[in-house]
Design a binder for these strands. Sequence first.
DNA 1: CGGGGACTTGATGGTTGTCAAGAAATGTGG
DNA 2: CCACATTTCTTGACAACCATCAAGTCCCCG
Lengths: 213, 213
Amino acid sequence: METLSTSTVHLRIASWRKGQAIYRQGDEGRHWYEVVEGFVALCHYFGDGRRQVSRFAGRGDAFGFESGLRQFSAEALTDVGLVGHAFWDDRAPPIDMTPPSGSHPALQRALEAVENTMRLFSYPNAMHRTAAFLLQFSTYCEQPDIIELPMSRQDLADHLGLTMHTVSRSFSELARRSFFILEKPDRLKVLDRSGLEAMVEFEKMQGDDQLVA
Amino acid sequence: METLSTSTVHLRIASWRKGQAIYRQGDEGRHWYEVVEGFVALCHYFGDGRRQVSRFAGRGDAFGFESGLRQFSAEALTDVGLVGHAFWDDRAPPIDMTPPSGSHPALQRALEAVENTMRLFSYPNAMHRTAAFLLQFSTYCEQPDIIELPMSRQDLADHLGLTMHTVSRSFSELARRSFFILEKPDRLKVLDRSGLEAMVEFEKMQGDDQLVA
DNA sequence: CGGGGACTTGATGGTTGTCAAGAAATGTGG
DNA sequence: CCACATTTCTTGACAACCATCAAGTCCCCG
């Protein structure tokens, strides 16, 4: 951990280089982190080599709440700047993580992020799932119609439960249908955002009269 | 909400009947809940009718942390007993939801539960995914080798990202291979637990030398 | 005992994973 | 700055898997 500056004992700003692991599955957790700059992939490795990317964390997101052994690895997709918070020091926690009475704690946001990811899996096919992901991810991008992807096709595949090939085919198909242009593999220019939103039936979510039993 | 007893202003024990909704997507969240008895499905409805069951909550699990509008519906799969905690009253929170310094707060457990669900999606096919779910769920069952399922095949399908038919076929195939016997559709007797565990390559998770980049 | 819902099973077509090859992008050394 | 090597990405062909449609069976409850 390359410390750049230290404001208090339990709060450190540090940076990692692209490709480095911030921590690994199996490590003992001592800190949780907020992303200041760049992108991090949180992923779980299985014994047989499968990898599950549970979410990508960008500016403002927090991760690393496992206080015992890490269940995930945190991998820097780009050069990354983080604020690290020590678990063992709970004097004046820098972010409110107390019960959900008013404030909006980091842990709750992490839960929502994972739940958002889970929703991707309800889409019927690879193209819809890919489109839904792109819309989700576009909120991280500065220009509204340019999506720059810090992660590889394999990272996306491990996130979406598909293969790299199917992800690539989905991109190509969406581009063929003029939803966007693939300027480079990791940079796409959105032409028809509302078309994408319609395609993924963007979570009307209003309490439409769904009944139980 | 049928109140059975009231211990303080912000903590109520209540029960729901099988099939009832504890709350619905779109409602305003006022409480979070702990399950005392029975099972609850947390599910998200999409505008086009798709349903995603993000997790099942059993005894000891907590749910309902969305303090704004509910993103999920909570549906009672069986008769259910719950402890409800009001958000707006933070005097003496009944369960520790403070930062992860030692204790094991309810919110953190919920995050882990969703992350566990996500791992199911990394399995290559329906049978493996089903087997992995059954092993996960068996921890709720009292007798180690009898799994009683409170949820329907459709609930399972919405949880696993499959159709009811494929879930049913997976059950039949696993039974045909003698991993268990389907005594009834909702009750199965496990014959070969270690075989199931081997099949799903049960999370060795040890920091085996996985490298990044 | 009878009716209705839930579950199971068969047949078929569409989608995705696999295997394989080729194209594009990236990095390196001259 | 260019040539080459390496990695990443794309695309094609084929097989395996799953969703769909359609019956049929089982189970639960009246």
